[in-house]
Simulated scan of single mutants.
Amino acid sequence: MISVLVVDDDPFVRQGLTELLATDGEIAVVGHAADGGEAVRSASSNRVDVVLMDVRMPIMDGIEATRRMATLPRRPRILVLTTFDLDRYVYSALAAGADGFLLKDTPPAEILRAVHVVADGGSMLHPGAARALIDRFHRQTSDAARTAVERIERLTPREKQVLERVGGGDSNADIARALAMRESTVKAHVSRILAALDVSNRVQAALVVRDAQLLADPD
């Protein structure tokens, strides 16, 4: 059973998400929070697998709450919920350690799938906005690019292939098909890649890829 904490200052959003999550027999909502401070306290004192985190909230916003949750001994996985006009906050949340983000108009089935993916150790980025967010708000500097290249040089040729696919947003299953590997082998490669790059999740690994300019800039 996946335990979920729903965090949003809008009670109608909390109710709607709770009702949606209740339709999945493998998900249990274990708590609600109306601000980031309350969310951190709840995640600290209860077993929480996944947090659905709003960005703009009173007292403590979702970015700071994400940063604090990322340091917990048993850190939950964090999915940020946002709208397009808040994308700069989403980038900050990802940099703080969030495992992905969804737009609030994401189809219900995709929200449920995202909870499962993140709970299983994956990352979930909205396909239409992820690339734009990284391109717009993660501007490379020469120092950042050099550091990223140095980190990537620690990898084997095969790990570099896997990392480039991770940077493009591919799932483990996608990578396995593309590189003719077993999915379990891909998972092992990803774990080693994260350790070598000194990052905590696939989102941050993708940012390293962007810094190193391994992906072509969009037209």
Rank of each mutant, 00 (worst) to 15 (best):
M1Y: 01
V13H: 02
L21M: 12
A28T: 14
V29F: 09
D35Y: 13
A39W: 04
R41C: 10
S42F: 14
S44Q: 13
S45G: 09
D49C: 05
V51L: 08
M53E: 12
D54R: 11
V55A: 11
V55R: 00
V55P: 06
V55L: 15
M57N: 09
M57Y: 03
M60G: 00
D61K: 03
G62L: 02
E64S: 12
R74S: 03
R77P: 00
L79M: 05
V80D: 04
L81H: 10
F84T: 09
A95Q: 15
K104E: 10
K104I: 02
D105Y: 01
P107L: 10
P107I: 08
P108Y: 12
P108R: 06
A109W: 12
V117R: 08
A119S: 15
G122Y: 04
G122F: 09
F137V: 02
T141N: 05
A145D: 13
A148H: 01
E150I: 06
I152M: 07
I152F: 04
T156P: 00
P157Q: 09
R158G: 08
K160W: 09
Q161C: 06
V166S: 11
V166N: 10
V166W: 10
G167D: 14
G167E: 12
G169S: 10
G169M: 05
N172C: 13
I175Q: 13
I175M: 09
A178R: 15
A178N: 11
L179R: 06
R182T: 10
E183A: 15
S184M: 10
T185G: 15
A188Q: 15
V190R: 14
R192V: 06
A195P: 00
L197S: 11
V199E: 06
D211W: 01
L215K: 11
